[in-house]
Design a protein around this nucleic acid. Sequence first.
DNA 1: CAGTATCCATAATGATACTG
DNA 2: CAGTATCATTATGGATACTG
Lengths: 96, 96
Amino acid sequence: MIDGVLKILSGKWSLPVLAELVHGKKRFNQLKRSLGNVNAKALSDTLKHLESHGIIQRQVVFTVPVTVEYSLTEKGQSFRAVFHEMGRWGEQWNQE
Amino acid sequence: MIDGVLKILSGKWSLPVLAELVHGKKRFNQLKRSLGNVNAKALSDTLKHLESHGIIQRQVVFTVPVTVEYSLTEKGQSFRAVFHEMGRWGEQWNQE
DNA sequence: CAGTATCCATAATGATACTG
DNA sequence: CAGTATCATTATGGATACTG
């Protein structure tokens, strides 16, 4: 039952990307910088994966040059509860 | 802050292994079968990783042949809350 | 900026065989 | 049973170049 959830979260960068986006919308290169060591392809693949599951949405802003903003969908927003529990757990058991 | 948590959960099999162990203690090959497509090395590495973070514990039972039981530590038990939220999320948004 | 494409080095995975 | 060792395959990472 939880298998479906784990499948969505599978992939090295899914959770880290979501963790970034719970803070609000971010652009491609902004995410890339925050995550530190993803390469463009890995990030691109991860974003498509999450988008295909309806967890994040991609919005093109027609500036010059264009910018693309990624943000959580309603479905993605509801995932905050999971992160919240992770945070609580981290506070309780870890130092950092 | 949540980074430490994600680090612990990193690795393809960490979450699936934990998902198995929340149901109770399991033996090595039992986990291997449940997870379907892990190979011994990957599972072994994952178990060591989780054990090193104090999330699961390894107990050797001196039968013939020996069996080794893996179970959640107190720290691991407290992670159930996270899985619980994942489950809720899955129920709300996914079919399976 | 936001990607895609490519080449290359390195890490992770899987299958199989083997040991205490 | 619970692993370790080994080898082949695959995935991932990093650098660089290129496009709309």
